[in-house]
Nucleic acid binder design. Structure first.
Lengths: 201, 201
DNA sequence: AGATATAATCTATCGTCGATAGAATTGCAA
DNA sequence: TTGCAATTCTATCGACGATAGATTATATCT
């Protein structure tokens, strides 16, 4: 074999395995077949590599899945905040709707980032991202906390709104208690509106 | 034939000894070290048996864990309903407090029955038990739904209350957003009280 | 170009898991 | 006792996560 031939074959060699490819493959498998189906071997096989390759880019399986979860949270945060109107009332309504839609459209990602599957994830890392997300909700909800409300009050209300949204999502996904979007926004308004003890809408 | 019948009936009168032991051992390991630590082998070892014995009493690991989850739900249901006062307002407050206390005192069982761990469980079976539990909440909440409220209205409100409680519990356990009991009852009352303030669309 | 160092990837393997087959054991009945 | 059936075991399978060490490919330097 001549040198040129060797160079040709080498240059046609598949590209170097990258962290991003691995993440994409794992995410694709998880979204399609659930996170149980995401094994070191299945991801490597999807990419045409041997399994140990993944350990060049990720400490272990938990590291890989945690990265996917953190990116999903960032994605949700972007969805929630982009082009959000200034008006507090409208903003909250839109945010609730966007949260619910994200959950429906990215069910598996939602389950992963909320630890609703068996997938091993670093709860501390995910929690940091999630708290950051919650602060965004807090900023939006803040104006509705009342007249002399502090930032802490806004955050308090945001925590509870977040809890309600996640609770309804969890029941919707796990328990076959189907909630319509309208019921979700309705309940959210009731929870928030009750804070001022003033009827809303 | 007579022999077979006798043996059948005798074995039915004394069904396979050990099912209860297995459940207890598995539950004990799960409560102490998390459901990840509950393996067919660890349970069998705790009992001093060989692993395959467990398959005489349970179809598979999921069957075993599902049974524990269903019993946990029944336990919660008993806690919620025993000696509940007739007065609707007081009953709801007590129920919320009992729910929260159960979650704090039986964290691992709560996580298992809500699928918050990797533990493989039969979601359909658990869901049936959970819906039954939710109906109990519905009966209690019913009087608070309003003047001309139907049973469906009570159930609707119960679903949302349930969602709020579980959402706050999930955030409390997973996300390091600590909620005090007072905040939980407070939010619950706001959600329910708002039902009479916000007109339904 | 050839030699060499570094990076990239592979093969082989370990220990653990859930699960099953089939053998060994026990206990009761005729 | 003999024999059947319930009970429990040993041995094993395939899949998993993970690691060690060999192997190959690329870059660098003469």
């Amino acid at each position: 074999m001549t040198t040129d031939e060797m160079r040709m074959s080498r240059s046609r060699r598949r590209p170097v395995a990258g962290r991003e490819q691995i993440l994409s493959a794992a995410r694709a498998i998880g979204v399609r077949h659930g996170w149980r189906a995401v094994t070191i071997r299945s991801v490597a096989h999807e990419l045409g590599y041997a399994s140990p390759l993944l350990y060049e880019h990720f400490r272990d399986k938990e590291d890989l899945l945690t990265q996917i979860a953190v990116e999903a949270i960032a994605m949700l945060e972007n969805r929630l905040t982009e082009n959000l109107p200034k008006d507090g009332n409208a903003a909250v309504l839109i945010m609730v709707e966007r949260y619910w839609t994200f959950m429906l459209e990215h069910t598996q990602l939602y389950r992963l980032m909320n630890g609703m599957d068996g997938a091993p994830i670093d709860k501390d890392a995910v929690s940091r991202s999630a708290q950051n997300l919650c602060q965004v909700i807090g900023d939006t909800v803040q104006p509705l906390a009342g007249e002399g409300a502090t930032a802490a009050d806004g955050q308090t209300l945001a925590d509870e709104l977040w809890a309600l949204l996640h609770g309804m999502a969890a029941l919707h996904l796990d328990r076959f208690v189907p909630f319509e979007l309208e019921r979700v926004t309705n309940a959210a308004l009731r929870l928030i509106g009750g804070a001022r003890l003033v009827p809303k809408i």
